[in-house]
């Protein structure tokens, strides 16, 4: 049984149109995803494709004007709002996308310590900082005194010290230098090897492929396909969807190739733009 199961998830926002009318905007449609213990599933898609909302939906922190339908289950238990509230921070941890997610008026060391559920908070925090290459004195700093990359490492520390069984990481790596990115990814892998399930949301297919077991390709609010990471090889013959293949072939090591099929060049351009 998967630790996290998302079935036919749809999210719709209610907004005001011109004048006095209201309209409903669908942002995610019929999304399905399953993550086993010890497995890393990468959710890959361009910015604005609704990836973050998937994370927010699982954690139950969507804004009020969002309506959710479909089923989500954690460890066999349906994720109702009450259940989510008991799980988050304890069995489910989150690495948010925004570096503004650190409280601007609290020393970052304290923010990490507050997330510790078992063991000595100070020791856990120091261990995490050492692991992600943050100097011990960084703990006494405020968020505005950190670089973007340092702030992200603090966010990863907060998520990992909680000892959760499921880790949802929403774009955890931008702004970090390549060595730290590798270290963070290795740390994720180590957690997965100890049995943590990880949902790794990113626009960076290359980074995703270094650690992921499965890759869910996400486009315009829907999963196009969920495939084994091993399928990304050669000219992408084993990838079923043309968009997935285009993503794969657009990577630098594949020579930014434009596929001969009708994958849509605009999409490739936009992706290159982002990298």
């Amino acid at each position: 049984m998967p630790l996290l199961e998302v079935n036919q998830l749809s999210i719709t926002f209610t907004q005001y149109d011109r004048g006095l009318r209201q309209k409903k905007v669908p942002v995610i449609q019929n999304l399905s995803l399953a993550v086993e213990r010890g497995e890393i599933v990468a959710v890959v898609g361009a910015s604005g494709s609704g990836k973050s909302l998937l994370a927010h939906a699982i954690l139950g922190i969507l804004p009020h004007n969002a309506a959710v339908s479909g089923r989500m289950a954690f460890d066999g238990q349906p994720l109702t709002p009450t259940v989510i509230r008991k799980l988050r921070g304890k069995r489910i941890a989150f690495v948010p996308q925004s570096v503004q997610s650190l409280d601007p008026l609290m020393r970052v060391g304290d923010q990490v310590r507050q997330a510790v559920r078992t063991g000595d908070p100070a020791a856990e925090q120091q261990r995490a900082f050492a692991q992600y290459g943050l100097a011990p004195q960084v703990a006494r700093r405020y968020p505005f005194q950190l670089s973007g990359g340092m702030a992200r490492r603090v966010l990863v520390s907060i998520a990992t010290v909680s000892g959760a069984e499921l880790l949802i990481a929403d774009e955890p790596t931008p702004g970090m230098d390549p060595a730290v990115v590798q270290e963070t990814l290795r740390a994720f892998k180590a957690f997965a090897d100890k049995g943590t399930a990880i949902v790794f949301i990113t626009h960076d297919l290359e980074a995703a492929l270094t650690i992921a077991d499965k890759v869910a390709v996400f486009h315009a609010g829907a999963t196009l396909e969920v495939t084994q990471a091993a399928d990304f090889e050669g000219k992408g013959e084993r990838l079923r969807h043309p968009y997935t293949r285009a993503l794969w072939l657009a990577l630098p090591q594949n020579g930014f190739a434009i596929p001969d099929e009708e994958a849509g060049e605009t999409q490739i351009c936009s992706l290159k733009h982002e990298a």
């Binding site: 954690l59 922190i61 509230r85 799980l87 988050r88 921070g89 304890k90 941890a93 989150f94 948010p96 925004s98 503004q100 997610s101 650190l102 409280d103 601007p104 609290m106 507050q114 997330a115 966010l155 907060i158 909680s162």
Partner: peptide, 19 residues
């Protein structure tokens, strides 16, 4: 964002307000 994150970390009610 930081309160959204705090909620994602399981903080709520008075603890969230105090912190």
């Amino acid at each position: 964002d930081y309160v959204l994150f705090a909620r994602a970390k399981g903080e709520e009610g008075f603890v969230l307000f105090r912190r």
